[in-house]
Write a protein that binds this DNA or RNA. Structure first.
Lengths: 334, 334
DNA sequence: CTGTTAGCGCATTCAT
DNA sequence: ATGAATGCGCTAACAG
């Protein structure tokens, strides 16, 4: 049941069937109807593999992320998939766990499968992976990923400004002793800029960043929890803690609650990301909202732009962030 | 840069190149080396699309789920993808939002893309979608999905027994007034059996199911929260609440905490699923643990078995559940 | 052990 | 407006 049998049945050539299939070229309405009829009667479904071989377009893109289990990435994927659906693309999903070897392997099979492009999220691009990505020679869009080695388009928020805004929000609420549970400063995508924004906001308002109130984690709940428990043990807490991720904020909240503190009466906690879970803690988590879904959506739109040969206007696409006010931060004004 | 140019460069025929590529047939070690050398030097990457056209195998499977943003499904997908990786398959991910029309569309394009099989999760299979799934004529494995119309393999836990075990656990802890925030009873996959297990356990121990302590939601946080707040307003609470999903359990917890109750001192709450988030609430959520990752993994393994023509031994594959004891349930023994 | 060749199903160019 | 013929890159049957 291929194009040929349809042609035979409809008493036309395969070229004509192909024409009605792709709405290319002109076909007399009568024969078009006839062909369509036959296709339906035979329950014909064109073989996209053959078409891809011919056109070298698969209408499929690869999406490589560290771990779909991370709520940030599952929202991101949803945005990507929604945009894909709109544009009649499909996505091949691959988890990398940020393992460089695994990433290379995936790039390799994606290339072999002739996918049209990829959306890539990972840790910082080093020379090795940059070389692989260049060599593979297909359009790539980066998100949540820092690079100064590649000139692929990047989609995300202005992390430094976002952190600055959040800390300024806390200061505006009367907080002066503000701690931060940061990401690692070697992470130039999120870790460093968010810390830099925090520091800048503090200095901007004449407040001091105290070393004992800054610690570093890998954005996981466990990290936030561990650090908060440590601080509790040392006594002498800030009145507010800004966390570089919602998961760390949730971990910190859990630590404080388990130790008998009340949030936000005893201590205020702010997060970063606005994953869905942020609204599923008691009274809600106040957080710096990234438009996660929109970032995914835009990433795919940019990729499709690349595929269609649109000239790239801007390489660094910044989407707007907002502050999502919920119950985990209290005012310190008297 | 195709197989032909490699053949030319290595001074062999395309057949020989194909042989070393697929390790099929015998090739003299010397020529094999030479071919491999050439492939590397030319940075040759076989065109899997052409191969698929020839073999009618794409080594790609479709995965259709309601929403990747749902933590249950993101863990499921992770299991599926891990199994896919092990078996050198890729997955095309599609969110359906349980929309029947969307599901049909996706089945259609997946068929056109000649994917080898699909893992399907959805609401109950009705006649219309059953017809589509039969007609598409490719191997399908079901998970989280009830059907009595199709004889496709199904992977999951024994929901009724699981619920029974959990409620018995609560009873063993001394609880006698146990409420349930259930799924809808029309959901034959999870809603009805989990309720049935609850009821059976209660009756089994001579306890009565009180109508005012049973309510129904769609497994979301909001549902658990709404129902719990309602119960609080009515006063007269059970000492323990069994929820048909972790998200509803989290919602219920949030409701109680927001209303000033302490968990588990004032009320015990148990969930179902053991999504990661269940361990990220203060003191942890006691829950009926589904082996979510394993369910995904097994689903794909079964699908691959189908693809390789293995005879299906059992159509209903039940994976073992456990009770994950954390801090949200207290003992009522004196 | 190696080479020749016939398709896989389709899009597309060139005639007509 | 339609058809005939070519080739996309590969696998596998067959021949040697």
């Amino acid at each position: 049941m291929n194009i040929k049998s349809v042609a035979r049945e409809a008493k036309v050539s395969v070229a004509t069937v192909s024409r009605v299939l792709n709405k290319s070229g002109a076909v007399k309405e009568a024969t078009r109807k006839r062909v369509i009829d036959v296709m339906e009667r035979m329950n014909y479904s064109p073989n996209v593999v053959a078409r891809s071989l011919k056109t070298s377009k698969s209408h499929t893109v690869g999406v490589m992320i560290p771990d779909i289990t991370n709520p940030y990435f599952s929202e991101l994927i949803r945005g990507i998939e929604d945009a894909a659906k709109r544009n009649n693309y499909n996505i091949i999903l691959a988890n990398t766990d940020m393992d460089r070897q695994r990433e290379e392997e995936i790039f390799d099979v994606l290339k072999q499968k002739r996918i049209d492009g990829v959306v890539f999220a990972s840790k910082m691009i080093d020379d090795t992976i940059a070389h692989v990505m260049r060599k593979i020679n297909i359009p790539i869009v980066l998100t949540s990923t820092y690079t100064d080695k590649l000139d692929f388009p990047t989609v995300g928020v202005d992390n430094e400004k976002a952190a600055f805004d959040m800390v300024e929000h806390l200061i505006g609420l009367g907080h002066v002793s503000i701690g931060m549970i940061s990401g690692f400063l070697g992470d130039f995508n999120s870790g460093y800029p968010r810390y830099a924004g925090y520091k800048k906001a503090m200095e901007c308002h004449g407040l001091s960043v105290r070393e004992q109130w800054v610690d570093y984690g890998e954005y996981k709940e466990e990290d936030g929890k561990r650090i908060a428990k440590q601080w509790i043990k040392c006594g002498n807490l800030p009145t507010a803690i800004f966390c570089a991720s919602d998961m760390m904020a949730i971990g910190a909240m859990n630590a404080f609650i388990e130790e008998g503190y009340r949030i936000p009466q005893d201590i205020s906690i702010a997060g970063f990301d606005n994953i869905k879970m942020a609204s599923y803690v008691p009274f809600g988590l106040t957080t710096l909202a990234q438009p996660i879904h929109a970032i995914g959506d835009k990433s795919l739109e940019v990729l499709i732009g690349l595929l269609e040969g649109k000239p790239i206007k801007e390489h660094k696409i910044i989407l707007p962030h907002t502050i999502m006010v919920r119950g985990s931060v209290a005012s310190k004004k008297q």
